[in-house]
């Protein structure tokens, strides 16, 4: 039974509160969507969960263990896996080697040969098995995304965070990713999925988190969240002709703008 507890977590970047006192809990194999305007702090929150960033304040517990103080690799071993908004395949390694890395990392005494068969199966499931011996850089963008999912299958975490898995993939790949999420969820794994694709996220998720300006402004079933005035406000804003922009850290001086 997966248990995740995020308590009052904040993250500052310079003078910016990218994540502002966020709290929520996950119990069991939930399928959770996380949405919010650009710069709302979604990616930062996932980075805090996976240990890529350390919170400025607050605590995170997973399965009863405090993970916000652990290095990322230990968090992975506790059972949290994630993909990145921008694909991050190991480009100068073969697909097979990409898949072997998490498997070997999880099993300190195992030998490579033990995982080749599983890697082949994972690649087959993701329809990239013909590319096993190719370097990852030779793969298309979509295939690299699949490879990232493949690495997660090899890692076999209990809680999976996908950052924008549907952004810019073509429909056929989308089907495979969708399939992957459903299948894996059925096996008892929880998901936190960030997406801009409202339609997909509303149908896919059982629970929806909404962030804006670093704050968690809504948390509940999709239908409820859809009607939440705070959410509508965040998405449409007061002057709705100007989409909300994240604060810039170093505003260009007046002299820096050059007439076209």
């Amino acid at each position: 039974m997966i248990q995740l507890e995020v308590n009052d977590v904040s993250k500052q970047f310079g003078g910016l509160l990218a994540v502002n006192h966020v709290s929520f809990q996950v119990q069991g194999p939930e399928l959770i969507g996380l949405i919010g305007p650009n710069g709302a702090g979604k990616t930062t929150l996932t980075n805090l969960l996976s240990g890529a960033l350390k919170p400025s304040s607050g605590t995170i517990y997973m399965n009863g263990q405090r993970i916000d103080v652990l290095p990322p690799y230990k968090i992975a071993k506790v059972g949290l896996g994630r993909t990145f908004q921008v694909t991050r395949a190991f480009r100068r390694m073969t697909v097979l080697e990409n898949l072997l890395v998490p498997a070997l990392a999880m099993h300190p005494t195992a030998r490579q040969a033990q995982f080749v068969k599983k890697a082949r199966e994972v690649a087959e499931f993701l329809t990239i098995d013909h590319l096993l011996n190719e370097y990852a850089r030779a793969l298309s963008g979509g295939q690299q995304k699949l490879l990232e999912l493949g690495r997660l299958l090899m890692l076999d975490p209990d809680f999976i965070i996908l950052d924008e898995p549907f952004a810019g993939v073509h429909p056929r790949l989308m089907e495979i990713i969708y399939e992957y999420i459903i299948e894996t969820n059925k096996q008892g794994k929880a998901f936190l999925i960030i997406s801009h694709d409202m339609e997909t996220i509303f149908t896919l998720s059982q629970r929806l988190l909404v962030m804006a300006f670093g704050k968690l402004i809504a948390d509940g079933p999709p239908e409820e969240v859809k009607r939440d005035p705070a959410v509508i406000e965040a998405y449409l804003g007061s002057d709705s002709d100007k989409p909300w922009q994240p604060e810039r850290k170093t505003p260009p001086a007046a002299g820096d703008r050059i007439a076209a």
Binding site: T250, P252, G255, D256, R257, I258
Partner: peptide, 12 residues
């Protein structure tokens, strides 16, 4: 102009 262009490139 050229100098400002240089600085503009360095920023974005």
């Amino acid at each position: 102009w050229t100098g400002k262009a240089l600085r503009a490139v360095s920023q974005d």
